[in-house]
């Protein structure tokens, strides 16, 4: 049983980690609580489904296209709707909820409420003892780790990364040091959307694609981000894996309560916050470091 809990926890956690990473990044840098984050994951899944099923394109090419399109969409949304009100946190949050709902309704208009599916990029499965896992699941875990590694390299080893971190630590000081804050925030929004779209791309074959698919993971990644410490990338990723394991454990240990997976995630978050109000890896709530 333990093997299965861990394996399934890693599968859930891998997806949540990529989503939560992007969410934490844009919050850490731009202080945008982007409730439309998982909507880009949904948009990417639909783009992949449409291009593969209607145009017969290859899955890798389509995934790259989906990520590019999601990045463009996110940056356009930022420029049009968020940039002008970015000083008002609550307004920004409400606007992002509206953007998410807008995407959902547009998708609903175009595709209706039908359920769709995409073929796995890599077919087949492996048995490790009592654990059965598909190659696509392994691909999700591995590609999530690679994506998270790439973002770490970007943040730790590049000039852009230093600028992003500087802004996340002190926006005014970064501005005074000559960093173009608006430009860096825009790039961060794009990176964040790329993360969401990437998650949509690798996970799409393992999901039912439908217009409301962005809602369930949103709750979990919010919990992961708060659990890890708002704004902390490392915290969000670790929080995502913790919640993945918790959700998996619920199914195996409390089978009658499988429907409470998300609720248990939220309770886990609350317990951690009761013990440590800034989350697991929050040094100071407002001034998080990489």
């Amino acid at each position: 049983m333990l093997q299965n809990i861990v394996a399934n926890g890693l599968i859930f956690g891998g997806t949540y980690a990529v989503l939560a990473g992007g969410f934490a990044l844009v919050f850490g840098v731009a202080r945008i609580l982007n409730m439309a984050h998982t909507a880009f994951y949904m948009v990417a899944a639909y783009i992949i489904y449409s291009f593969i099923s209607m145009l017969g394109m290859g899955s890798i090419v389509v995934s790259v296209l989906a990520i590019i399109m999601a990045v463009i969409l996110a940056t356009v949304c930022y420029i049009l709707f968020i940039d002008r009100v970015k000083q008002h946190d609550l307004t920004v949050m409400v606007i992002t909820i509206a953007i998410g709902m807008l995407f959902q309704e547009i998708i609903l208009l175009i595709f209706k409420g039908d359920y769709h599916g995409v073929e796995p990029f890599i077919k087949g499965y492996l048995d490790f003892g009592k654990v059965r896992i598909t190659y696509q699941h392994l691909f999700i875990i591995l590609s999530s780790l690679i994506a998270l590694g790439l973002i770490w390299v970007l943040l730790a080893k590049t000039t852009m990364g230093i600028a992003i971190r500087a802004i996340s630590q002190d926006r005014v000081a970064a501005n005074l040091m000559g960093i173009n804050v608006s430009r860096v925030i825009l790039i961060t929004v794009g990176i964040s959307a790329a993360f969401a779209a990437f998650a949509g791309a690798v996970v799409a074959p393992n999901l039912t694609i439908y217009p409301q698919m962005w809602m369930p993971p949103l709750i979990t990644i919010l919990a992961a981000v708060v659990l890890g410490g708002l704004g902390s990338l490392k915290g969000a990723i670790i929080g995502a894996f913790i919640l993945g394991l918790v959700e998996s454990a619920v199914v195996f240990l409390v089978p009658l309560g499988g429907y409470l997976r998300e609720a248990v995630s939220l309770v886990t978050m609350l317990i951690v916050l009761l013990v440590r109000s800034e989350g697991l890896f929050g040094i100071v709530f407002e001034e998080e470091k990489l």
Binding site: R132, M215, E247, V251, P255, G258
Partner: peptide, 22 residues
């Protein structure tokens, strides 16, 4: 041998299916 009660919107059922196999 087991009763699992997932939600209608569970994004994946692989954990429940694995538990049934186990």
């Amino acid at each position: 041998v087991g009763l699992w009660r997932p939600s209608a919107t569970a994004p994946t059922l692989v954990a429940e299916l694995s538990a049934a196999k186990e």
